[in-house]
Design a protein around this nucleic acid. Sequence first.
DNA 1: TAAACTTATAAAAAATTTATTAAAAATGCG
DNA 2: CGCATTTTTAATAAATTTTTTATAAGTTTA
Lengths: 229, 229
Amino acid sequence: MSKILIIEDEEAIADLEKDYLELSDFEVAIENTGDKGLETALSGKFDLVILDLMLPGMDGFEVCKKIREEKNIPIIMVSAKKDDIDKIRGLGLGADDYMTKPFSPSELVARVKAHMARYDRLVGSSQKMNDIIEIRGLKIDKTARRVYVNGEEKIFTTKEFDLLTFLAENPNHVYSKEELFREIWDMDSIGDIATVTVHIKKIREKIEFNTAKPQYIETIWGVGYRFKI
Amino acid sequence: MSKILIIEDEEAIADLEKDYLELSDFEVAIENTGDKGLETALSGKFDLVILDLMLPGMDGFEVCKKIREEKNIPIIMVSAKKDDIDKIRGLGLGADDYMTKPFSPSELVARVKAHMARYDRLVGSSQKMNDIIEIRGLKIDKTARRVYVNGEEKIFTTKEFDLLTFLAENPNHVYSKEELFREIWDMDSIGDIATVTVHIKKIREKIEFNTAKPQYIETIWGVGYRFKI
DNA sequence: TAAACTTATAAAAAATTTATTAAAAATGCG
DNA sequence: CGCATTTTTAATAAATTTTTTATAAGTTTA
């Protein structure tokens, strides 16, 4: 199922868009500031972004530019002023479409579908450039299998990389050691899952500033681990 | 230089569009019927099509659909009636953009540029077609099938050359031995892919200063190989 | 706070993967 | 066909990763 990120500070509008998109079977998330929106967009979980121009914090121009530096996913920019639309079109920020408020929900859905279809058509099954996950200072390049922490590359082994990538791709979700084992090791955990603990430790040594107070992979005592977004 | 095809029966309009696009350094051709337009579009010589909806012979709907069956190039559809635009948008013909006449020439140029940029961004007209790959001290001449390391020619066998070229053309991407085998040997690896390892070693002997610390082809333990850019 | 339980850490042992070498097989060419 | 070259196979060595194990440290619960 395709995932759409709405970056919009007017709650009523965002909710309305969300409702209509969900009726068309899209999965929708909303962020209400530019900064949070950018971060979520760069997490790599979304297939399309609907971006309002006027936002608290970082504005839409900037967010669009920053997303484009890393991602090729379709971006639909939305503004209340027709003049702004003409202006940003000329700036060549790399947005894929521009809509002036107010617009009909069905038009939004139609455009979203069209952009998704084109993206699939062009990028298709080939190499998706969309394989960079970035959360705060952590950057994971999936095809190159490289990990950077605050710009510095850290060398990861296969299992470490797979485990970190899985957690980072599914943030804010607690996984038990058994679940992680099944996910990365492709088999049922017959008893011993101590190796998961050891791998988590090794990952933390590479990505955390202070392993005792992890910023990325949290321990949920008695349950498992969670990647904090 | 990018080439644009205008399919439009009103000569005055077509000429006007042509003039403006040429001012922006595009190469432009005009066809005035649907049938001829389709044929020219399918010739493969054009990077973008501007397609009028009302045409003698085959109409714009049909032309758009037929182009899409063969080509992914951007198509901008043009119509005098706003209603028609809404209608075709819903049809999902695969057009990339829709404009209602009359429109300003500068808007046309802006849209053309945006679509070209996106197409390049997603499909990557980059250096893939280049005959000579040069990365640091390594130079690969594809048509001559010669390899130079710091100016000195090294003799490569067929498989060695193909393997090195594939990796160098797709740098920063980790390929497993199986993938490399499929790519170079044109068949599924039924079990043994040890030959890939041996070829990598032979290539390294020729291009690396110290095969134990490869500067070009890195080993990603447990995964495969990666050409370092 | 002590007991019970869970996770973190460290180091070694085990397993896996790749590099190297050499010989065998296949291919291409005169 | 026979020779030279390329490619593949196979066996061993070397390197690296993964798992195990033991112990320490941190939480929770009664």
